[in-house]
Design a protein around this nucleic acid. Sequence first.
DNA 1: ACACCTTGTTACTTGCGGTAACTAGAGTCT
DNA 2: AGACTCTAGTTACCGCAAGTAACAAGGTGT
Lengths: 214, 214
Amino acid sequence: MDTTERTEQALAAERRRRELLEAAERVVLRDGPGASMNAIAAEAGITKPILYRHFGDKGGLYAALAKRHTDALLASLRAALDAPADRRTRVETTLDTYLAAIEGAPQVYRFLMHPADSASPGEQGFDVGRHSAPLLRRLGEELAEVIAERVDLGADCERLARVWGHGIVGMMHAAGDWWLGERPCGRDELVRDLADLLWGRLAAAGNREGGPGF
Amino acid sequence: MDTTERTEQALAAERRRRELLEAAERVVLRDGPGASMNAIAAEAGITKPILYRHFGDKGGLYAALAKRHTDALLASLRAALDAPADRRTRVETTLDTYLAAIEGAPQVYRFLMHPADSASPGEQGFDVGRHSAPLLRRLGEELAEVIAERVDLGADCERLARVWGHGIVGMMHAAGDWWLGERPCGRDELVRDLADLLWGRLAAAGNREGGPGF
DNA sequence: ACACCTTGTTACTTGCGGTAACTAGAGTCT
DNA sequence: AGACTCTAGTTACCGCAAGTAACAAGGTGT
């Protein structure tokens, strides 16, 4: 039981695990989130119990599957948030990074965020919500940190930053979700419009003539 | 088969349906969204097939269950949106209405929005996401309408209004969700902070000293 | 008396998540 | 060499929930 052999086996196990994850991803992207463990095992060329040995349960498999993508997304968003540029540019870059990510891999996105949708209807999906929500929460917290450390808010700055962090992430997520479904405009326009919203254009705009006068 | 009798029976059927829905709600609020059709039927004092005759499948039952609450919520939000007051007040009132609703019935809220969470873990929840998302979509569209008809945006006004509608709804939803979980502050503070965000305070705030200078 | 709908039942099928118990092969200790 | 163990793999099963088929009973019209 010398170390080299141990690590060798450990590496082999990890490789296997990656293979399984890739098979799972293939199935899940093909059949939707309702894919059964049997189907995933079959795609990987093995049978169920091995999956359970590797991932504990279905949630574990899914969590591992989700982690790969969320980690990558978080990394690029962090980069955009930390870029040396003025605030408006940074906001736009970050929005654009997120939207580009979900635009580039909508299958993955739908899998992460919308359990029940994709693939044949009538399927009872994964309990995916349990994993998309944490992603958004983490995002909100990270954004809050950046806001708190960069923007000069008055008293209660920490609470304000967190409220804004989660609020902005929610705005980005909801708008992105809608946009991805309807594609009513180009990505750049969406980015500009959202940034305008955050820049107070809603407050600055005048009232429509003929309205109730407010 | 005269009409009076027909309607009488139809009314009886509707009453029954409401009773079933109430039973279902009781169970779902007690056991979480993983409640089985058997359990619901038992609570209603009958057996499964009747539920299926009334609601088609589990999704149908859930849709009916969700409709009751979403309709009520939508109605009060519409009222807040249409109130005769200046824009900032209207925004704050609407936010407060939403937050008060989810604060007042968090069980219902969690059921509508967060399938997998509540109740014992390891449950495979409803495919609830399929019903919460439409609610948010409808909300976004309604808000977009109000914005488009009340606020004077320039060209592309319709697209802008829809982007903002969905964005603001998402902001409200995400912030509310986070707030409901952590309760970091009072409702009024949250409302004020979110309104401040929409009023451009993020853009107006200065940079923190010691930061990278942007 | 007979055919009818509605409401309800029991008993079943199907399919999935998850597990127990066993097998084959490869490396290790004595 | 032969016993020991560890690991990837299997088959065969359990429990449970969704959904369905087939049947039973009570009121109603003809």
